[in-house]
Amino acid sequence: MHLRLRVWRQASATATGKLVEYDAPNISPDMSFLEMLDVVNERLMEKGDDPIAFDHDCREGICGSCSLMINGAAHGPMKATATCQLHMRSFRDGETIDVEPWRAKAFPVIRDLVVDRSALDRIIQAGGFISAATGGAQDANAILVPKTAADAAMDAAACIGCGACVAACPNASASLFTASKISHLGHLPQGQPERRRRVLSMVNQMELEEFGGCTLYGECQEACPKEISIDTISRMNGDFIRAGLTDWR
């Protein structure tokens, strides 16, 4: 395949960036998108140029490091697929591909396609956990969890924290990310004691990080490599309303 790339290049957080065009000949359709970028980078380095910086790690769609807005879609054109699992056979020979970083006020660009997603960690810090210090647990089977509840919790817990929901949302909202953790823990009996406190402080933190609000466009669900449902957002709102009207301290 012979492709043309237009890639966002930005030397540092404070520098101004721009889209730069690259010619990418001899690309195998069996390459993953990131392997294609590896090849482009090798060629850049052989010419003495700086390679394109991008986040990646496991390359099997589970660590959530990889990002990339590809032709205007978070993680590219393939549904339920992170960028690292996207293969070049999803593109046409001769195509021009735009590659941009996630864009949100809460995700400042660090360099090229690398952004700072630590806001998501701080949302978890605010309450995305069950307070169970090591050592005090009772026997695991003493807590019965109906299979339906365990399955629903697992559906939400599949979130890889990549931030595609924020990137895809026209409002740059982190609602799907936040709601998936709230749903995961809220479906389980272990998560009940802190359920109200959790939703209040996580939502509050989401606002402090300056993410947008949810308009239920549904773009997040479509972009999510783990296909997490916007049902979780509805659930979060329900929890928030109950807690907000009764428990706010």
């Binding site: 050592g135 647990a137 695991a140 089977n141 807590i143």
Partner: peptide, 22 residues
């Protein structure tokens, strides 16, 4: 055995039988 207890307490959604046991 303690690991499983600890992880369940933290909310790790292990697979379950219909009766709710692990």
């Amino acid at each position: 055995v303690n690991i499983i207890d600890q992880c369940v307490a933290q909310g790790v959604p292990f697979a379950r039988e219909y009766g709710g046991l692990l």
